[in-house]
Amino acid sequence: MHELGIVKHVIKTLGDVAKENGVKRIGSVTLEVGEVSGVVIEQLVDCWNYFREKNELVKNAELTVETLEAVTFCTACEKTYRTVDHGRICPFCKSKETYLLRGNEFSIKQIEAELIDE
């Protein structure tokens, strides 16, 4: 249950953010998740819906997940390609000497919040 731990961390981070910014309630949370970050979005959303009930700050917060395309770079021919389509082997020159440029991200992009002094 990888997603369970992640959601707990998201909620904890949001708690810190709320304190720093004088947030009373959070209306929505947008996450950015790389295609190959290893996070299962359906499970993430389930865990979110389970946990948010237990926390006043995020009780009514809808979760939006934006997926970021994964791109791999080939060091042999110096081309880039979509990781999900071709995996580790370069479709242009068949080299295995490739590495992930992006697609492993997992971040909280933004929140919509109701401030204490509003």
């Binding site: 904890k12 971040s107 919509e112």
Partner: peptide, 15 residues
């Protein structure tokens, strides 16, 4: 409602 841009990695509180 105010939009707050964060761009924080999820593990930042743990870090």
């Amino acid at each position: 409602m105010k939009v707050i841009e964060l761009r924080m990695t999820v593990t930042s509180s743990n870090d």
